[in-house]
């Protein structure tokens, strides 16, 4: 889309751009209205003015919709293990994100343990074990087709006994409409709570950045099963913008905590609303 003047055409283009970023029709309409009002209020005239105004407004809206105390990854340094549970649909990037985050914590000098609780998918345990080797972090595994909760039990026991700073739990991908698989996740959470009642510190839904409106249903159903503390938005190095997180934010106040920017261990970043807004509007202003 081309910048013309600050007129209706511009905001039509803006709305189109939001829809094409998977923000969803309703949210795109709401955001466009808010951004149009703000641009008028600020009397934005030049291209640069406008860019500044809409980016700032989007960040303001994003911040308003959340809880300032829960924007970044949480951890406690009381000597107790921080347990992070990773959930999400098939192929979203859970295992890879765990590998990347393990590297980050390791680089910060923390002790990290991984739990290979996807005992279902072919090659899933081997995949996490390979990540463990790459980033030099031990992995707790169970027998093939073992009950995933039993692996989580063993890993929790070990993490607590060894005073690990972090335990990152990998789970099998599951579609949110599968009742039995969702209750398996509940069982995993219960297993953690049995030994560590205040954990998980983070329960993160991993979302593929190219997902469309189904991501909203994912967020709602996973949140019902294991109360979510945040989102990880992966594969943002592709042609998708992952705009559906704005709709999720609107409806559920859930923050994006991490973004995936590639397949390497270092391709992980904290979510930054301003950067995100700039990226979103990049083609427009």
């Amino acid at each position: 889309a081309q910048f013309r003047t600050v007129d209706e055409d511009f905001f039509d283009d803006l709305e189109e751009l939001l829809i094409e970023s998977d923000v969803g029709y309703e949210t795109a309409e709401q955001l466009t209205t808010a951004l149009r009002d703000e641009a008028k209020l600020q009397k934005a005239k030049s291209r640069d003015d406008l860019k500044k105004v809409i980016v700032e407004k989007l960040v303001e809206l994003y911040d308003q919709n959340g809880d300032a105390a829960n924007e970044k990854l949480r951890s406690h340094d009381d000597g107790k293990t921080n347990i992070y549970l990773f959930v999400g649909v098939n192929g979203a990037g859970k295992t890879t994100t765990i590998g990347k985050l393990a590297k980050r914590f390791k680089d910060e000098g923390k002790s990290v343990l991984l739990a290979a609780a996807d005992t279902f998918r072919a090659g899933a345990v081997e995949q996490l074990v390979e990540w463990g080797k790459r980033v030099d972090v031990p992995v707790v595994t169970g027998k093939e087709q073992a009950d995933p909760a039993s692996v989580v039990f063993d890993a929790t026991t070990k993490a607590i006994a060894e005073h690990a700073d972090y335990l990152l739990v990998d789970t099998a991908g599951r579609l949110q409409n599968k009742k039995n698989l969702m209750s398996e996740l509940e069982k995993i959470e219960r297993t953690i709570k049995k030994q560590a009642p205040d954990e998980p510190t983070e329960t993160l839904l991993v979302l593929d950045g190219s997902t469309g409106q189904n991501a909203l249903l994912q967020a709602k159903d996973f949140d019902k099963t294991t109360k979510l503390t945040g989102l990880v938005l992966t594969k943002l190095d592709g042609s998708s913008k992952g705009g559906v997180v704005l709709a999720i934010r609107n409806e559920m106040k859930l923050p994006v905590k991490l973004v995936g920017l590639g397949e390497k261990a270092s391709d992980l970043a904290d979510f930054d609303a301003a950067d995100y807004a700039v990226g979103l509007f990049h083609d427009l202003v």
């Binding site: 649909v89 192929g91 469309g212 409106q213 991501a215 998708s240």
Partner: peptide
């Protein structure tokens, strides 16, 4: 192709 793919499906397929 993942059936959950959003708007980028056209770019991906064309690519």
């Amino acid at each position: 192709v993942d059936a959950m793919t959003g708007q980028a499906a056209t770019d991906v397929a064309k690519g």
